[in-house]
Computed example of a mutant assay.
Amino acid sequence: MRRALPATRPAALLAALLALAACAQEPPLETRLQPYVGQTEAQLVGALGVPNATYATEGTRFLQFQEASSTVYPGDPFWPGPFYGRRFGGPIYAPPLVVTRTCAITFAVQEGRVTGFTFRGNGCR
């Protein structure tokens, strides 16, 4: 004989799962960078560390922060077809796959304060 769950348990479980899912998603990068606009250059460097590159022109300084990461997916043996592997002696091995993700964030600083930012790269999340 199976016991039915009380009506409150599934609702509580669903609410807990939804709350957990909401916590798992972080806001977009643009939303996370917006609080730096208006801060001083010293506050920006204090929060993010020393920039990888700087450039100054016409009263504006640009500070660029870069991040890169690589993920290696191991190779796998696979059988391309029912006859190919048997005829030529076995499986074919797919080589490892290396995926590199980069993100470059550039902040514009005028008169000592951050006025804006841009970002580019396939790893900007």
Rank of each mutant, 00 (worst) to 15 (best):
residue 105 I to P: 06
residue 46 G to T: 14
residue 44 L to M: 07
residue 100 T to Y: 05
residue 100 T to F: 13
residue 9 R to F: 13
residue 5 L to A: 04
residue 119 F to P: 11
residue 125 R to N: 03
residue 71 T to W: 01
residue 105 I to C: 07
residue 67 E to P: 00
residue 79 W to N: 09
residue 71 T to D: 10
residue 45 V to G: 04
residue 30 E to R: 02
residue 33 L to M: 14
residue 112 G to E: 06
residue 12 A to F: 13
residue 1 M to T: 14
residue 61 R to C: 08
residue 39 Q to S: 00
residue 38 G to Y: 04
residue 33 L to D: 01
residue 47 A to L: 07
residue 44 L to V: 07
residue 79 W to V: 08
residue 53 A to T: 02
residue 110 Q to R: 15
residue 107 F to K: 08
residue 64 Q to D: 06
residue 91 P to A: 12
residue 97 L to W: 04
residue 18 L to T: 12
residue 90 G to N: 14
residue 113 R to S: 14
residue 77 P to G: 08
residue 77 P to C: 00
residue 67 E to Y: 08
residue 15 A to M: 06
residue 103 C to W: 04
residue 34 Q to R: 13
residue 100 T to E: 15
residue 1 M to A: 11
residue 21 A to M: 07
residue 19 A to T: 04
residue 30 E to H: 06
residue 25 Q to Y: 06
residue 47 A to W: 04
residue 31 T to P: 06
residue 95 P to M: 00
residue 115 T to S: 10
residue 115 T to H: 07
residue 13 L to S: 06
residue 106 T to P: 08
residue 43 Q to M: 03
residue 88 F to H: 13
residue 91 P to N: 10
residue 112 G to S: 06
residue 111 E to R: 10
residue 7 A to C: 09
residue 105 I to W: 00
residue 54 T to Y: 06
residue 121 G to S: 09
residue 51 P to E: 12
residue 82 P to H: 06
residue 105 I to R: 02
residue 5 L to I: 09
